[in-house]
Design a binder for these strands. Structure first.
Lengths: 196, 196
DNA sequence: CCTACCGATCGGTAGG
DNA sequence: CCTACCGATCGGTAGG
């Protein structure tokens, strides 16, 4: 009795969630069928509904799980006692690491959220917008500080977040550099582009 | 007799192609139905098939139209007699302008190409890979020249192309800066990140 | 967790 | 360009 406790949750529902993230990432939400998912999980399609409410509910759980994690991290970084530039670097490193290590759910949250349905769709969009504003505020603080060159902070956020979401194509490449080397290259270019 | 000749082609087929690009961009290829498209065009779904072969053929035409345009531009820039850094800047400006002006088809080509079917899928993937290699070669030449700082050129290409494809969210923003201002901001940050 | 099945919607065709 | 319609597949439910 008593399973071994780890940081991962291997309940049936969590297995389904993880497989769904991989499937949605590969095929796109709409093109992925519940029969596809059932086959991967190893049950009949109807059986999935003992663990989940609907296909859209799976997307919901993936998207908000990721959003919560990112909001949490941003809050932690905001309260750090350090320069703006090093806060931004921390945040970028977090984004890059998440994209390297948990890229399936991060990718789905990033690219498939438009298939969410109301009221979750609006909720999610609002969270995204808020996150970007807080990120831009960090950049603006750095510009005021004279740590960062005078740039449009909204554009800078757009560039950095999308550059990172492009790590997906790094995953697909055959002769790829290591995750750590990728992180260092990205930081050099992105943070280098901000510095005075 | 004789229609007025302009650079735009308003044939029935081209109208369908343009509406399809907008629809695929908004809903995603899979979620967009031919009945949706027919309604936008103003005919019955069956009538579309007098102008096109299949839904997938529409995606094909959009993706390869964009690919051809980009390959053409890259070839022109490669033969220019100028510094590597200014070649890269020209290419980036072209990418940004295309994303601002023709963003529907560019976006579809960028995000929905995985729904192409063989042999077009492999053909398209190969073209993408080749394009990125040629772009990376321009950066490597600049590093050798000492125009550009020593960075991983593959990562730099990944960053720049994805940063630009993120202009999609600029289109959705309400209080947006002008296309020209966006271009200048992006060039400042991206090219600034390369310079020694 | 499975079998059996539902109504809806899909891409596409026949025939005019 | 339309009406009428096809077979396939979809998300999901009933009942055990």
């Amino acid at each position: 009795m008593g399973r071994i406790k780890t940081s991962e949750n291997f309940s049936r529902k969590n297995i389904i969630l993880n497989k769904a993230a991989a499937l949605f990432k590969e095929k796109g939400y709409q093109a992925a069928s519940m029969r596809d998912l059932a086959e991967i999980v190893g049950v009949e399609a109807a059986s999935l509904y003992n663990h989940i409410k609907s296909k859209n509910d799976l997307l919901n759980e993936i998207c908000f799980k990721v959003a919560n994690k990112y909001n949490q991290k941003l809050s932690n970084i905001e309260t750090e006692n350090s320069t703006c530039l090093s806060k931004i670097e921390s945040l970028l490193r977090f984004h890059i690491q998440e994209m390297v290590e948990n890229f399936e759910e991060v990718f789905v949250s990033d690219r498939e959220w438009k298939h969410l349905i109301e009221p979750y769709l609006t909720n999610f969009q609002t969270q995204r917008k808020t996150y970007r504003k807080r990120f831009a505020a960090m950049i603006d603080a750095g510009i005021k500080n004279k740590e960062i060159k005078k740039i449009d902070s909204t554009t800078a956020v757009l560039i950095m977040l999308h550059a990172i979401s492009g790590i997906e194509s790094w995953h697909r490449s055959k002769q790829k550099i290591s995750g750590k080397a990728l992180e260092e290259s990205m930081i050099t270019i992105l943070v280098g582009g901000l510095k005075k």
